[in-house]
Design a protein around this nucleic acid. Structure first.
Lengths: 210, 210
DNA sequence: GACTGTGAAGCCATTCACAGCT
DNA sequence: AGCTGTGAATGGCTTCACAGTC
């Protein structure tokens, strides 16, 4: 692995490549070219090759890439060769949707517990995952050595939840609350902002009508 | 409005600025500087000014920006000064979460109907929004002049749903299915890929341990 | 003095074009 | 001949630095 900074866009695309490779592997395809990958995921062959070249030489000149081996490499690059210990805070509709999202489990993200303050939900299970009261969040993170926390609570509570995760030294946070979290540099945060996405869509549609 | 291409990152940030401005306006703040905005949303003052400068001169030198007026301008830029007619396909957990997401309604995105093939759901309401069978999707788009479609169905059905929307000339699609949709150029698409987000987080956490 | 607006510089990501391998 | 790997060129976004205005 070379020691240069990897563009974030490259990392996102690797994730897409990997999912695509798993699909074609199921279909029995053994070998694939950068052009074929590019066509399927909506990119250019040069970009596919550049993305992969950041991490090594995985292909064979004149031939292409071995589907299985390439995916294995990407999975390793993305840090997916193991189970990530994840917790989810917020058992509302969004939390419920996330808890049963097969795409997480398939890729090694195990949601171990859900936390919520609603006394009617505590003690129940959400898609087989136990729901605990939020005041047990801090202890749970420590005891189970949780690495990733997903925040799916209303905006006004999101920073409080994040603060608990920060205090207990979680490695990363996936935040669905429409708010900018204040988090120390050593903790990785990614925001999924649903409203922003619709608003960008709105802008793009409007600006089409030149 | 100047006739240069606007960076997508700028548009995303405008959406964030707008939400922030609404919040501080509620708190009775009248005037704000680029530095204050930057600090709250995690950016730099120069970037805030540059973003706004693409669209005009909204501030007063030596003073700053009027909170209310600036937000009004941003709302107009983003195309939010009206109601967008939206439909949602997929009444599972994710669809359910999206249908009750207050952030959409607050910003002028009205989900008029939900579509699903599950015969047990059809006829019911999801957070007050009626659920129709998917075979009525095409007609509904035409009759109600729907502008935006949200796809929240499993990956294997997503392209079929998109094809109906495309055929009926929808303006934009917000896609939650983890698949790259094939869509003609004139239709705006934005993808929200939950698995990709977690995988980028995974990569970033791993690459911290230099 | 404070803060905006903006050309210029710097930085980062994508695309090009071709050498190198099979 | 076909396709990868990669330095060089291009294009785009962000940061800098300062003139302009209140």
């Amino acid at each position: 692995m070379k020691n240069v900074k990897i563009p974030e866009a490259t990392v996102s695309r690797l994730s897409v490549y990997s999912r695509f490779l798993e699909e074609v592997e199921k279909q029995g395809v053994n070998s694939i070219s950068s052009g074929e990958i590019a066509e399927s995921i909506g990119g250019t062959p040069a970009q596919v090759r550049k993305d992969l070249a950041y991490f090594g030489e995985f292909g064979t000149r004149g031939v292409g890439y071995n589907v299985h081996e390439l995916n294995e490499q990407i999975v390793k690059i993305l840090g997916l060769g193991k189970v990530w210990r994840v917790i989810l805070v917020g058992a509302g509709n969004l939390g419920s949707a996330l808890s049963q999202y097969q795409g997480f489990k398939d890729r090694g993200f195990e949601i171990m517990a859900v936390f919520d303050n609603d006394i009617h939900k505590v003690g129940l299970k959400l898609n087989g995952i136990p729901i605990y009261p939020t005041h047990q969040l801090a202890d749970f993170i420590v005891q189970h050595n949780v690495q990733i926390g997903i925040i799916a609570v209303p905006a006004q509570f999101a920073q409080d939840v994040a603060d608990i995760m920060i205090e207990k030294n979680i490695s990363g946070i996936l935040n669905f609350a429409p708010i900018v979290l204040t988090v120390p540099e050593e903790i990785e945060v990614r925001n999924v902002d649903l409203a922003v996405n619709l608003e960008v869509l709105s802008f793009n549609i409007e600006s089409r009508r030149n």
